[in-house]
């Protein structure tokens, strides 16, 4: 796992943290629920922060995190260390759960029109066209995002950070769907090349 060496952040603390999370998934896979405690102690506040940023409402964010932890519990045995970090895997489970809530019309239809408007409006503010660097922090990801053309970068951030779909990004940017898809696709190719 030499690739871990160029991971951002203080390497040793990061490795220890990663090992704890990996062991926690192992515990869940073995049916020991203290694995859940470890994950929530180490990452709970940050995970809830991610859910809150995407969903814009505390009750929905809490629900997403609870669902995600149940999923982590039941899917932990499927986690494979060779396919990325335990931390990345846990955040992906949460993000997927948030996106499913956002895209489930029936789920959001219980909100009043005012609340729904608030959720949508809050999402519009997540990715500012200027000052996006705050989203990626200092480091290689930020440098590489900085080298992308602004439209590709903005579209990629709208998708990953705010959970917008292709169609929503196209409507927001007032561009044809196909243009957005190719902007994102080209942007990701360039981004991965820069990061590797």
């Amino acid at each position: 796992m030499t690739k871990k060496d160029d991971a951002p952040g203080p390497a040793r603390a990061g490795q220890e943290h990663g090992a704890q999370l990996s062991a926690a998934l192992g515990a869940c896979a073995a049916g020991r629920s203290e694995g859940i405690d470890v994950i929530l102690t180490l990452e709970g506040r940050q995970l809830l922060g991610v859910a809150m940023r995407i969903l814009g409402r505390y009750d929905l964010a809490e629900e997403a995190l609870q669902d995600a932890m149940i999923r982590v519990w039941s899917k932990a045995a499927q986690y494979r260390a060779q396919s990325g970090s335990a931390r990345g895997w846990i955040y992906a489970v949460l993000r997927n759960r948030c996106l499913n809530i956002l895209r489930d019309g029936r789920r959001l239809s219980v909100l009043s029109p005012g609340d729904l408007a608030h959720v949508q409006e809050a999402r519009q503010q997540i990715v500012p066209p200027e000052g996006w660097e705050i989203l990626s922090g200092p480091g290689k990801l930020s440098d590489c995002l900085g080298r992308l053309d602004p439209q590709s970068r903005h579209s990629i951030l709208l998708a990953h950070v705010a959970g917008f779909s292709h169609g929503e990004i196209a409507a927001r940017q007032n561009m044809p769907l196909g243009t957005i898809k190719s902007l994102i696709r080209r942007g990701l190719v360039a981004l991965k090349e820069c990061l590797s």
Partner: peptide, 17 residues
């Protein structure tokens, strides 16, 4: 997994709750 890990700083930029 590799791309997910590369993009993880974006998730870590959310304010904790």
């Amino acid at each position: 997994g590799a791309l997910r890990d590369r993009l993880l700083p974006l998730d870590l930029s959310a304010s904790p709750c």
